[in-house]
Amino acid sequence: MSKEFEIAREFEVDATPEQVWDAITSNTGGWMWPSEPPEPRVGGKGAMGSTVTAWDPPHRYTNRAEDVEGVEEQSLNQLDYTIEPREGGRRAWVRYVHSGILVDDWDNQYDAACRHTDFYLHTLRQYLTEFGGRPVVAFTTFDGPDTSKTADAFVAVGRALGLGDDTAEGTRVQARGPEGRRLDAVVDFRNPYFLGLRTDDAMIRFFGRNHWGYPVGISVHDFAPGADAKAVEAAWQDWLNGVFSQS
Rank of each mutant, 00 (worst) to 15 (best):
E39F: 01
T82H: 15
P40L: 03
V94Q: 02
F11A: 08
Q19Y: 00
V13M: 00
K45A: 14
T28P: 02
E18M: 10
E87F: 04
E66P: 00
V20P: 00
K45L: 06
E12M: 03
E12R: 04
A54I: 05
Y96S: 15
V97N: 07
E36D: 15
F11G: 12
I24T: 08
L79H: 11
A23S: 09
P38G: 01
G49C: 01
R60K: 13
V42K: 05
L76D: 13
I24K: 00
S50T: 09
Q19K: 08
G49P: 02
V52F: 02
H59F: 10
E87I: 01
D56A: 13
D56T: 10
T53K: 04
A23R: 05
P37F: 11
G49H: 01
D14V: 11
W31G: 00
T53R: 07
W33V: 07
G70W: 05
P85W: 04
A15G: 14
R95K: 13
Q74H: 14
V20M: 13
V68T: 12
Y61N: 08
G88C: 03
E18P: 06
G44Y: 04
V13F: 00
A65N: 06
G70T: 05
T25P: 01
D67G: 00
E69S: 06
W31E: 06
Y96W: 11
R60Y: 09
T51K: 15
P37S: 12
M32S: 13
T53F: 05
S75P: 05
P58G: 08
W33M: 11
R90G: 06
T28C: 02
N27A: 15
G49M: 02
R86K: 13
V42A: 12
H59A: 14
W21C: 09
I101E: 11
E73N: 12
P38A: 04
V71Y: 06
D14Q: 11
L76W: 15
E18R: 13
V94D: 00
N63C: 06
M32C: 09
N27L: 15
R91D: 02
H59T: 12
E69P: 03
R90E: 11
F11T: 14
W21A: 08
A47E: 11
S35E: 10
G89K: 04
P85R: 03
R9C: 13
E69H: 08
H59E: 11
V97Y: 04
P40K: 01
W93R: 10
R60E: 14
Y61L: 14
I101S: 07
T82W: 08
E72N: 12
S50N: 06
T25E: 09
W93K: 07
P85G: 11
G46K: 01
P40Q: 11
